[in-house]
Amino acid sequence: MQFMQLVRKEILAEWRNPSQLGGLFSFLAGVCFLCYFFSGDVHPAQWNLLFWIVYLFLCFFASARMYEEDNIRYRIYTSQLVRPLMLFSAKLGYLWGLLLLLSGVLLTLLGALLPVPGTGGLAWLVLLALVSAGFACLGCFTSLLSSYGQSRQMLVIVISLPLCFPLLGSAYAASLELLTGGEAWLTKLIPVLAIDLLALAMATILLPLSWKA
C-alpha cells in the first residue's frame, strides 16, 4: 500500500513538472530523427549499437533526476515517514516503468525510421523489461550515492557509466541475436538476469547501511 502511494507520489511529481518528461521525449525523437537523417540504410549491428547508445543516454537523463528533490532536510523528514528501502523500491519501480516506456517508444520510433527485420515481438518486450530493471536499479542506486556529492548530474554519469557496461554488453549481445534471427537469444538473456539480480541484491544489502548519517 505504502509502496503504491510512493509510486503515485513519483508520478504526481512528474505530472506537475512535465517539462522534464517532455525534455526526455524531445531528446528521444530528436536523436531518432538524426539517426534516420544521417544513417540511411543500416546494418542490424549498427542499428543495435545506435539503439543501445540512445537508450544509455535516456537512462542517464532519467535516473539522474531520481533523488534530485532530495536535499538533506527533506531526506531526514522522509526517512521518518517511510523506510529508506521502501522509498528506494518505489523510485526503482517508477524508474523501471519510465525506462520501459521510453525504450518501447525508442524501439517503435527507431524501427519505423530505420526499418530492420526482427525489431518487435514478445522477445524484445522481455529483453527491454529485464534490461530496464537492471538499469533502473543501477540508476537509482548511483543517483542516491551522487545526491550526497557536488555536481550531482555529472557525478551520476561518471559513477554509473562504467557500472552499466556489463549489463549493456549482455543486452547488446542478446538483441543482436534477435536482430540477426539467431536462436540463442534466450540463453544470452541469462547474464542480463544474473546482473539484474546481483545489482538488486547489492542495492538491498547496501542501502540501509549507506542511508544512515
Binding site: 557500472l163 544474473a194 546481483l198 542495492a203
Partner: peptide, 25 residues
Amino acid sequence: RISAAYNAFALATVIPLIFVLPRLT
C-alpha cells in the same frame, strides 16, 4: 559511508565484467 557503499557495489559489477562476460565470447 557513500564511498564504502560504492566500493562494495563496484566489486559486484567487476565480477561479471572480468569473470563472466569474457567467457561468453
